[in-house]
Nucleic acid binder design. Structure first.
Lengths: 154, 154
DNA sequence: TGTGTTATTTAGCATTACGAACTAAATGAG
DNA sequence: CTCATTTAGTTCGTAATGCTAAATAACACA
């Protein structure tokens, strides 16, 4: 078997695993993967505007509106009008949202972290180097093409 | 920065790159990523039944029916009733479908393959080893849990 | 023959996502 | 200060993907 094929197959396995974990994860948090992703962003940033979330997720504002609607109805987040610019809406995490987040540790992350810690030091170092290498091989284009860099993207 | 964090960030970059490429790819083929995935499977296997595609994609049969409907309407594939078992429907690629496929080289694959070939031999070997390692760290559970292995899955 | 199993489709629903059109608020030119 | 423009978010209509449950058709075997 070709080395490239082996790599691509491994990459697909990784992608599929991520998807699977995403679903599990969402189930234990009581929301869908996308909704959870939004909640994670809000939690991470303290409070984001709708537009900032949309840009960060590379998604149209209308899409975020719909997702926030559902999260708000479920009581996970709430909308707060900005005082400095009343066009803006700040999305903030509610108590309930924070609880859901605590109940939903990222399964992929956990699994990987556990296994990773059991490895030899040199093995860890090798994995770090390779993953970074592969990531930059794959996503380099995006920044090279001059795509807009969004606030909080890094 | 923590090694684990570095890995996870790299993994997310890889996931996002894959998504981006998937969209590009599908666009040049004139169909959605999922539809293209079905067409690829059909092309690869010569002719699959609807059920086989569903199992391979880990998706409910009803979902495949809907996708095949669209692909058939667009003239990319056609349905043919099996002669040996008339409950089965064989999905076959049309001329038009094959053309679309030719027009859509897998962007991720291309990009990766190009870069990969430019690397030193030892570097290639290391990448192969690490990706396989990470893949098995992440997707091991699935087989361990005794999930059904689907025909053509390997 | 009849009963049970298997393959696919139909129907109805939820989620994600988009673009276009709209409202409200801020900003800038004159 | 006023009017035009831009920006932020929402609403509306549409499409794709995915599910479950129920229907339909064909096979299989006792």
């Amino acid at each position: 078997m070709d080395r490239i094929d082996t790599c691509l197959i491994a990459l697909r396995r990784i992608l599929r695993a991520a998807e699977t974990y995403g679903k599990e994860l969402a189930q234990s948090a009581g929301m869908t993967p996308v909704q959870l992703r939004v909640v994670q962003i809000v939690a991470e940033t303290g409070s984001s505007t709708a537009g900032a979330i949309a840009r960060r997720m590379h998604v149209a504002p209308a899409t975020i509106t719909a997702i926030i609607d559902k999260l708000e109805r479920a009581g996970h987040v709430s909308r707060e009008q900005s005082r400095t610019d009343r066009r803006q809406t700040h999305i903030v995490l509610t108590e309930r949202g924070r609880n859901a987040l605590d109940r939903a540790p990222d399964a992929l992350q956990q699994k990987f972290a556990t296994d990773f810690e059991g490895l030899e030091d040199w093995e860890q170092a090798m994995i770090v180097a390779v993953l970074e290498r592969v990531a930059s091989m794959l996503d380099r284009t995006e920044t090279q093409r001059g795509a807009v860099l969004y606030p909080g993207e890094l």
